[in-house]
Design a protein around this nucleic acid. Structure first.
Length: 375
DNA sequence: ACTAGACCTGGCGTC
DNA sequence: CAAGCCAGGTCTAGG
């Protein structure tokens, strides 16, 4: 095992780990509340095709990292990889000030809470968000952990926990089945996952690519990074509709201007932005998508117009703006996968620490919102 | 083309 | 105490 350590000078205004790692972007980060370290296994592509064990911890001025690697790597390359994972080149505060605030007063005086959009591996992102449908974050996290621990490869054993890679499409095809996934509690998503893995294996074979990450890179190049065509391709997988496809585009293909539209942001559009779909715009959209088989079949034109409105309003980093609004909209204490009662308690405390409003929130707020929307 | 329901599961507030 | 609702959706069958 090779070990690497390093750090970034970064403050919590720019990056707040709990608000990035635990809020429904990535699902396999595990916090050890005793030490404050987050641990995960990640594929440091293109440095290596193998998964490595990564740990992160931050204080008010620094982000520390620790990498446990099966192979020798360059410290500088690891450093840059992490920098890229967090998209540290993006200045969110400046974006807010210069791009969002002038057009959208809801960002006035807003605490950005160190929310960022991660750049993630497309295959794992795809499967993770297939799991997300009609589901909650704790269970999605649990499912992603199960995929790793049951179908991934053991990377290393530690005192209390083992670390596994996230399974490749081949590994899922070989080791998993609809029945085994169902018995692990995946519900109806079991079929989606198996069908998606099978299709991907097939597709890779056709173009002679073995690595999942490389295949999606190939797709991105093939379509010259064209969003509509890549989304169309993604919606060819079972269990992938517009929302999941957009999440993969935003986080897996780092298309920063893509705003995934879910129930929350749809509600925000109507309630706070007085969104109404016009017949004319709907007609134009139908015409635009008339030649795209899957898009035509799976898209909801009203939600698509909402997506376009936000893209127009927020510009090239619209997806980031959405991430911040989304965080605020749901900001209920979130939990990560598994862990002990005690660590859960501490995490809840940590969440409320940075948003005092949470403590004041009345239980039926969500219902009231729905009612408001109807008026 | 478009709209209801169904769909696995586990946790939670309400009756 | 148990039936019911909800959770970052998608799929399918019908009018």
């Amino acid at each position: 095992m090779n070990e690497y350590r390093g750090f970034f000078n970064i403050c919590r205004r720019s990056l707040q780990l709990e608000n990035v790692l635990q809020t429904g972007q990535a699902f396999r980060w595990v916090l050890d509340s005793e030490s404050g370290w987050y641990t995960n296994t990640l594929k440091l592509y293109p440095l290596t095709p193998e998964f490595q064990i990564i740990r992160l911890k931050q204080n008010d001025s620094k982000l520390e990292y620790h990498l446990e690697s099966s192979i020798k790597l360059e410290s500088r390359e690891i450093h840059n990889w992490i920098k890229q994972y967090f998209r540290m080149e993006v200045d969110v505060e400046k974006l807010c000030e210069e791009q969002w605030l002038p057009n959208d007063s809801t960002f006035k005086g807003k605490n950005l809470r160190g929310v960022r959009v991660l750049q993630q591996e497309p295959w794992e992102t795809l499967i993770s968000f297939i799991c997300s449908s009609n589901n909650n974050i704790p269970r999605i996290s649990q499912m992603c952990q199960k995929l790793s621990s049951h179908y991934g490869n053991l990377l290393n054993k530690h005192e209390f926990s083992n670390y596994y890679s996230f399974p490749t499409s081949e590994e899922l095809c070989d080791r998993a089945s609809v029945e085994s996934l169902r018995s692990l509690g995946f519900g109806y998503r079991a079929r989606y996952i198996i069908e998606t893995a099978k299709l991907l294996v097939q597709q890779k074979k056709i173009v002679g690519i073995i690595n999942d990450t490389e295949y999606f890179q190939y797709i991105s190049n093939l379509y010259k990074n064209d969003y509509l065509q890549i989304r169309e391709h993604l919606m060819g997988y079972s269990g992938v509709g517009p929302k999941v496809a957009d999440c993969v585009c935003l986080m897996g293909f780092h298309m920063d201007d893509i705003v995934p539209i879910d129930v929350h942001i749809g509600r925000v559009a109507k309630r706070d932005y007085k969104f109404v779909a016009s017949k004319k715009e709907l007609a134009i959209l139908r015409d635009t998508y008339s030649t795209m088989k899957l898009t035509k079949k799976k898209i909801n034109y009203e939600l698509e117009l909402i997506r376009l409105m936000f893209k127009e309003l927020w510009g090239p980093y619209a997806g980031w703006a959405e991430g911040i609004l989304f965080f605020r909209e749901i900001s209920t204490p979130t939990t990560l996968a598994p862990i002990s009662k005690e660590s859960k308690k501490k995490r809840l405390f940590a969440d409320t620490l940075y948003d005092p409003k949470n403590a004041l929130k009345e239980p039926n707020r969500r219902q009231n919102k729905y009612i408001k929307t109807e008026v």
